[in-house]
């Protein structure tokens, strides 16, 4: 069982100059079972990225611990793939070399990795783009390359930090379908951070709404829309009455949090 588990995870940043401390996260508890899709939502600065970076192993928690399948997380690893907001592609390599980066680092047999790369480029809809330099791709295509690069490594968990944030509405919708499709086909555990309430509702089988100062999980939802999204059209789901109700509820919640922050400042 490769569950992603957090126990009383805390993170405090201290400014080395002023000595003032920011409690970015406080007592985060999380248990994400294999194959679950968790969306994380919250006002800006509530610690979403910090949480993700700790799970990826880029940051060490001040206290508490995180583990994957019982193994303590204390550094980056291939079993936890990352997708960044801006792709973070290697612009000096063509698409195929970007995708097989992880395989080359592991010194996989070239023929085998070639097959894998082709398979994944096919899945994300980039067949024939293998030799294109990445800087010639559109934002949406670059994000697909980033997804393929992460998936070709066959990680247990995929961590995504606002992966669709920089895309236009139409491309975004296509990418949302793609994420759902990949989730269904691969059965991977996925944690996705987003700023868009709609996206969180559509993609999140589970949904965390986080609150700032200190960063904590404010409310947790279990939602049916992701399951439905596998078969129905996303636009139809958005018309759903239940969908609108939850959306309004969360929007009000975040709105109030923002108000509260403004009031305090």
């Amino acid at each position: 069982m490769a569950d992603l588990v957090c126990k009383d995870l805390c993170m405090t940043f201290t400014n080395p100059q002023t000595g003032s401390a920011v409690e970015a996260l406080k007592d985060i508890n999380l248990n994400l079972k294999k194959g679950e899709l968790l969306a994380v939502l919250g006002p800006s600065g509530c610690g979403k990225t910090t949480l993700l970076n700790m799970l990826a192993g880029f940051l060490n928690p001040t206290s508490g611990e995180a583990s994957l399948g019982g193994n303590l997380i204390d550094g980056p690893g291939v079993e936890r793939g990352m997708v960044f907001q801006q792709g973070a592609l290697f612009e000096w390599l063509p698409v195929s070399k970007n995708v097989d980066f992880g395989l080359r680092m592991k010194k996989t047999d070239p023929d085998e990795s070639k097959k894998l790369v082709e398979k994944w480029l096919d899945i994300v809809g980039l067949q024939g783009f293998g030799d294109t330099p990445t800087y010639q791709l559109s934002g949406g295509m670059q994000q697909r390359v980033a997804l393929a690069r992460c998936l070709v490594n066959n990680p247990d968990v995929i961590l995504m930090d606002e992966p669709l944030g920089a895309l236009d509405a139409l491309t975004r919708e296509k990418m949302q379908s793609l994420v759902l499709e990949l989730w269904k086909e691969t059965g991977k555990t996925i944690m996705i951070i987003t700023h868009s309430v709609e996206e969180a509702l559509l993609l999140g089988e589970r949904l965390f709404v986080m609150a700032p100062r200190p960063g904590r999980v404010h409310k947790e939802y279990n939602l049916p829309f992701a399951e439905r999204g596998l078969t129905e059209s996303l636009r139809e789901i958005k018309q759903d009455k239940h969908f609108s109700e939850v959306r309004e509820e969360i929007l009000t919640m975040i709105w109030n949090m923002e108000e509260e922050i403004m009031g305090r400042v």
Binding site: A56, G57, F58, G75, P76, G77, V78, R80, G81, M82, F84, Q86, A88, F90, W92, L93, F101, G102, R104, M105, K106, R149, C150, N153
Partner: peptide, 23 residues
């Protein structure tokens, strides 16, 4: 983010030096 991505993709320090930082 590029360095973090390559860490997550399983690259060692030396590999990151040669394949990410140098280019």
């Amino acid at each position: 983010s590029k360095i973090r991505a390559s860490h997550s993709l399983g690259a060692t320090n030396g590999q990151i030096m040669r394949n990410v930082i140098f280019p």
